[in-house]
Amino acid sequence: MYNLSAKQEGFSTTVGLTVRLTSVNSPTQDVHTEYNPAAISDEQLLIAVGNSQDINAFNQLFQRFSNNIFALGMKLTRNEQLSHDLIQEAMLNVWQKAPLYDLDRGTAKGWIYTLSRNRCFDMLRKQKRQPNCISADDIWPQEANTELMPFHEDSSGQEVEIALIERFFDQLSEPQRAVVEQIFMQDRTHEEAASILQIPLGTLKSRLRLAVAKLRKLIEVEQ
């Protein structure tokens, strides 16, 4: 989580940036560094919008992407008014869905492109009064996060695997263990676990991903 304290047009000022990093070896650490806003990645901005409704970060994203969204609109609709409406629709969607973004979903550019194309497609469908039995999100569905599953669901081998996981459990960091416990032992959804542990959804997912990767590695070595 971090705060962008720069003013809207403040490309020349530096801002305080606190990034919370989670890694396998160092559970949680806060890094405080001075950054130029132009050097902040799209991903950091998007996560700030999602985690703390950071309006300055949203402003930055708007400045970076609104022209691209307009150009995409012009290419697909050849209509200036519609393309202008698309900026509104797509950036509104970016704001609304930012809490759902995490690094597992790929780059921020790719994520914003997908939202913009989908909103544009739906706008055109609506304008042409096409049947509304499906929407762009059905045609280009979000990937299910299968890589967060430690093993293929195979009930026959499951008992062995749970025993294996328990053996390596204490090699995980405390925050990782908490996440694994919530998801795989308490059988909670990602959203429930994030709210119980009082951490953002994105943080939960990256911890889970790292924990699962570590467990997989440990089990591979064992076998």
Binding site: F62, L72, H84, W95, L100
Partner: peptide
């Protein structure tokens, strides 16, 4: 595509309206 520019204008009203909207906190899978 990047040579196409949106009309220069004041987008602050648009941004202000957007950030008033509720965010979607939990995944609503279709």
């Amino acid at each position: 595509e990047s040579s196409i520019r949106k009309t220069a204008g004041d987008y602050s009203a648009m941004i202000q309206n957007i950030v008033k909207e509720e965010q979607i906190k939990t995944e609503q899978l279709p």
